[in-house]
Design a protein around this nucleic acid. Structure first.
Length: 645
DNA sequence: ATTAGGG
DNA sequence: CCCTAAT
């Protein structure tokens, strides 16, 4: 029968707490439901939280409460906060929960009671008038249980180590009556259970727990704390009861007597006996208990509990009030809840969720990283930044957002698009950065490169421009002279396919960069490449040879080695030379002086040469120029002419 | 694509 | 040097 009941009990317990409770009480008192075991462990856990808060939140592992989680939690909370401002609200919620629970319980009760007539717990749970049959109920329960396992209980009794005498525990009414408003206002199981306490006390008057059987102790425990226990350890039970009755945490392990709510130490028991009791407890305790809970554990539990009670408060009442019971229950409850929560449901769920999130995040990142097919860029970036501050700074933001992925395909897009459009579109475009980066990286190589005649340089390559910029920057930093690139011819084409690709892209990028509002001057400056005498000479020669205006030809023939000089550059330079020559004419000295200050002075020889060419050009140009530009051309020409003349 | 010219 | 317009 026991075995069967036990198994059944367990099953029921797992499935339906209420059922479990009912069965347990009636069936095998010795059965230790998992809950009790948990209680023990919970108490151990209490060690960790000795703070008052923890105590306040007390967790009670009450089967009754377990029957309805909602009930247990909210109820307990409400009870606990029964002194607080928002108490009423919580109480209401609690009442609702209680109602629900009661309905459940009653339903269960009906079903179960129909089969089993005698059930203490159901009655306890049921809302009954505390004063009426409380004692009877308790007794009935006790009576019923006693016969079940008399032998063991006897043995246990014989082994009792402590003699606990409860003297004048106090007025039963005080204990039984609802002690606090919350308790009064609501009719809760706890209340009804707690009401049992008086009966117990009264009957005994002066109670010597030593004489109690385990079953009786359990009942006493239930009466004291308003919850059932399956713990078979008499010592534990006694101490617990004593603590509950005396509201004291200082319940010695040894023999003690309770007088006037205070525990008076009696003759000390020999340690051996204590051990015996422990052993007994172990043997008597449930299978689970025996394996999981050692006597030491029980001891610890007690100690913890004591500490807890110490912290939790000083109650003036002689007997444990409803609050006390509640607190205890709450304690158990919370612990139980804690345990449940921790390993199983929420924790796992949350964990899983977190994992999922992480996975998602990871995947996301992975995707991003994958998207950015240019891991090297990250590395490159720094370098790039270092080389070209401002420029990059303007584009930096761009780089941040679209850095990785945009580069790839913009790349193509740009290539196809006409330069003008690109310029407009590309402004602030991230690609610029990539381009720049690449360029920057290439700089070192480029510098090393010697002119390689790229006979056909279609456009000024952006890379080159960037290079220029970078170089100039470096120069400025170094304070440097002018090795410059003039001799170092950068050949875009020489840079090979990749470079070419860049070149294509580069135009836009270059254009884009200069447009940056912040450092327009700087930008231009960066792209600026000072004209060397060599270049100028070549230019002049070229003009002389091929005539002014044939810049592409000149560039192709004379500036093959200077890939960075575009036809436009040549044209511009020539214009400047003309101006210079013209300006120089009127006040040569001044111009020279001025020029000297500014930069490399242009040799007068060259200027004169320019003048000649200009003259010639003017001559030929005059013919052509008139129609083209009467105003501008004329002004320039005029000066030129005047100078020349 | 070049060229001329303005900024 | 850059940019644009006109060829």
């Amino acid at each position: 029968m026991k075995d069967d009941d036990e198994s059944n009990d367990k099953k029921i317990c797992n499935s339906e707490p209420v059922v479990y409770q009912l069965v347990r009480v009636e069936g095998d008192g010795r059965l230790v439901p998992a809950t009790d075991d948990e209680v023990m462990e919970v108490e151990q856990l209490l060690e960790d939280k000795k703070s008052e808060l923890a105590s306040v939140k007390a967790v009670g592992h009450d089967e009754q409460c377990l029957s309805n989680e909602v009930f247990s939690k909210s109820d307990l909370e409400g009870t606990m906060q029964s002194g607080n401002a928002d108490n009423s609200r919580k109480l209401n919620a609690r009442l609702e929960n209680i109602k629900v629970m009661l309905k459940k319980v009653q339903k269960e009760e009906r079903l179960l009671l129909s089969g089993e007539s005698l059930n203490c717990s159901p009655k306890c749970m049921a809302m009954e008038d505390p004063t009426s049959d409380r004692s009877n109920t308790s007794k009935a329960c006790i009576d019923k249980h006693e016969p079940e396992n008399p032998s063991r209980e006897r043995a246990a009794s014989s082994l009792e180590l402590n003699s606990i005498h409860i003297v004048e525990v106090g007025t039963i009414e005080a204990c039984s009556g609802p002690t606090n408003k919350a308790a009064t206002s609501r009719s809760s199981i706890s209340e009804s259970c707690s009401s049992l306490l008086p009966d117990f006390s009264i009957l005994r008057g002066e109670i010597c727990l030593d004489n109690f059987s385990i079953r009786e102790l359990q009942e006493a425990f239930r009466a004291t704390f308003g919850r059932q226990t399956s713990v078979k350890d008499k010592l534990w039970l006694k101490r617990r009861i004593a603590m509950g009755l005396t509201n004291s945490c200082h319940v010695p392990t040894a023999r003690f007597t309770i007088k006037d709510n205070k525990i008076i130490l009696s003759d000390l028991k020999e340690p051996a006996r204590l051990q015996q009791s422990m052993i007994e407890a172990e043997s008597l305790s449930m299978d689970i208990h025996a394996t999981n809970v050692s006597p030491q554990d029980i001891k610890n539990c007690l100690n913890n509990q004591m500490e807890f009670q110490q912290v939790s408060g000083k109650r003036l009442r002689v007997l444990p009030s409803n609050d006390d019971v509640k607190d205890e229950n709450i304690q158990m409850e919370q612990c139980a809840a804690k345990r449940m929560r921790k390993p199983t449901k929420r924790y796992i769920e949350e964990l899983s969720e977190l994992e999922t999130r992480e996975c998602t995040a990871k995947s996301y990142y992975c995707v991003n990283s994958e998207q950015s097919q240019f891991p090297s860029k990250a590395q490159i970036m720094p370098f790039h930044d270092g080389v070209t501050h401002r420029r990059l700074s303007s584009t930096r933001h761009e780089s941040l957002r679209g850095f990785s992925f945009q580069v790839p395909f913009v790349h193509r897009t740009r290539r196809g698009q006409p330069r003008k459009n690109l310029m407009a579109l590309m402004e602030y475009h991230p690609n610029a950065i990539s381009h720049i980066v690449k360029t920057a990286v290439m700089i070192p190589v480029l510098e090393e490169e010697k002119e390689n005649g790229s006979s056909s340089r279609e456009t000024r390559s952006v890379p080159v421009q960037i290079l220029n910029t970078n170089i100039s920057y470096v120069k400025s930093v170094a304070g440097e002279e002018g090795v410059e690139m003039d001799c170092g011819t950068l050949n875009c084409e020489e840079l090979d396919p990749e470079y070419k690709e860049l070149d294509g892209i580069g135009d836009t990028a270059c254009d884009n960069v200069p447009k940056q509002p912040a450092a327009k001057a700087n930008v231009r400056r960066k792209h600026h490449r000072a004209w060397t005498l060599c270049e100028i000479r070549k230019l002049v020669d070229g003009v002389a040879k091929y005539g002014a205006g044939r810049w592409s030809e000149i560039r192709r023939l004379s500036f093959a080695s200077y890939s960075y000089r575009t036809s436009v550059d040549l044209k511009d330079k020539w214009r400047n030379l003309l101006r210079a020559s013209l300006a120089q004419c009127p006040t040569e000295k001044e111009a020279n002086n001025f020029r000297k200050q500014a930069s490399i002075p242009i040799p007068s020889s060259i200027l004169s040469q320019v003048r000649e060419l200009a003259k010639l050009h003017a001559q030929t140009g005059i013919k052509v120029s008139p129609r083209k530009s009467a105003g501008h051309g004329s002004s320039t020409v005029h000066r030129e002419g005047s100078g020349f003349i």
